[in-house]
Simulated scan of single mutants.
Amino acid sequence: MNAIFLGMACLLAAAASYWILGRGTPRPAGTWAMSALLASFALAFASYAPLFENAVEAIVPHVARPLSNSASLAAATSVLAVSFQVNLQPAEARRRIRLRLFLLAASVSGMAVLVIAEQMTHRSPQVYALYLLLFISYLGFAIVDFLQQTLRQSNSTRRSSVRIGLRMAAAGCVFALVYATYKVTVLFSLGLGIQLVPDHARCSSLVSAPCVFSVTSPALAVLLICLGLTLPAVVYPISQARRRRWEVRSFEALGPLWQDLSAAMPEIVLSAADADEDAASDSDFLLQRRVIEISDGILALRPYRSRSVQEAAQQTVEAGTERGAAIVEAAVVKAALAAMQTGHLADEVAVPSASGTASRAGDLRAETQWLLQIADAYAHGETVRVADGGQPKPVGA
């Protein structure tokens, strides 16, 4: 148990240090709240370890339990602060956080007074019951508040990592409610004067009663909430790196088609005079620019797009597939470039080779995927056979 809880405490303390020291400036919204959350959870995990508990008790007797409970309340408040700062307007977030901090200070102060009173009255069950009532009231309020927010936000967010993270945090809230229910049971047993639950018993196993409720449940709650709230921050840089790699590869794959179109129509190449230095080297900017230039080039070829070439190409591919439509479009574009070089206008202009143009409008990824299929068919010679019979000689492959 010492290894598990102290190990988790060290990991959470390291994560808190990263949020405090490694975020740079200006710090994003919620940085300090997340730091406080991780630090509070680190202290809460450490307080579950018998080694830490014995060390603290050797210095100040009977302080381990209120220290652990205070860390739990601080962590719950930090969770709410993170949620408020991320999802509410700054003024409203500050107002709600101030209220929760006031309630936290009042609860912790009241708990400290009751702990002192409990020791002075030789561990009076009535005083301990008041202590539990104060602790569980604020903790339950914070858990329910956060659970409502996570469920509402998980249903409205579009990012899958955020949605999964919020649902993990909601699962953590369920375990926290199990712990709160256990504490309420202890409270009622004290009020009725019966010892239903041995609340002061030392735990030697994480799966035996009542330790499964008093230690395992809050530990799982802490773990799931921490993982849920940090998952988007971990996934985001990975997804951004994958996105940039896809953009670079797509930019290069569109190169052969773009080179032939820009060589035939230099006017489609956009001016770089208005782009700043950072944007000019950004993969998203470069890919978007290339997609626009290729689309403009294909549009400019409209008078040279032969319907007969299109129909001949359609007879050689599988009808109704996007790949087949891309091969047909590549054949039409290749023949249109050749016709443009000879000045031969099409007798009958070909219609677009694929539907869904309106749905792709404004969607860089969808438009890029479509052009990548055309560029692949164009560069690998899949259109030579269909663009050859009686039409201008294919170019670009």
Rank of each mutant, 00 (worst) to 15 (best):
K334P: 02
P66T: 10
L67Q: 10
A312D: 14
L133Q: 13
L231K: 10
W258K: 09
S217R: 08
L372P: 06
W370T: 01
K334F: 00
E57F: 08
V212W: 08
L364K: 10
Q373L: 15
Q195M: 14
A33I: 03
D278V: 15
L299C: 07
A44S: 06
V186P: 11
K183T: 10
L38A: 12
V248Y: 14
R305W: 08
G324H: 03
L38T: 11
I298V: 08
S40K: 02
L151V: 07
P352Q: 04
S353L: 04
G165W: 00
L220V: 03
L286S: 04
G362E: 08
G191R: 12
H62Y: 15
L372Y: 02
R249A: 12
L224N: 06
V248A: 15
S161I: 01
R323Y: 05
S359F: 05
A176H: 02
M1G: 09
Q310S: 12
I225F: 01
Y128P: 07
A201Y: 07
A75C: 06
E277G: 00
A339N: 08
A319M: 10
A13C: 07
E329Y: 07
E322K: 07
A361N: 04
E367C: 10
S283I: 07
I194W: 14
K183S: 12
L231G: 11
L114N: 10
A358D: 07
A93Y: 10
V386S: 13
L147C: 04
R96D: 01
L99D: 00
A46Q: 06
E329I: 05
V212A: 09
V386R: 10
Q341L: 10
A338T: 01
M34I: 04
A112L: 15
A313T: 15
E322L: 13
L6R: 06
T185D: 14
A93I: 15
G324T: 07
D278M: 15
P232V: 03
A233H: 10
A325C: 05
K393L: 14
E348M: 05
L364Q: 13
S161T: 02
V333Y: 00
E348F: 01
V386K: 09
V395R: 09
A336N: 02
L364T: 14
V82P: 00
R385Q: 12
H344L: 09
L287E: 09
I194Y: 13
P394S: 05
A358S: 11
Q259I: 13
R98L: 09
V235Y: 03
A221L: 02
L270A: 12
R152H: 12
R323S: 12
R123Y: 15
T185Y: 14
P256L: 13
E311F: 05
S17T: 08
R163N: 01
S189Q: 11
P232M: 11
S78W: 01
G297H: 07
A16H: 02
P125C: 08
V63P: 00
F146I: 06
P303R: 05
A354F: 11
E329Q: 06
I164F: 06
V144F: 06
L299Q: 07
M340P: 00
A58C: 04
M1W: 03
G193A: 13
P26S: 05
E267R: 05
V174L: 02
V144G: 05
T121A: 14
L11I: 13
T230N: 11
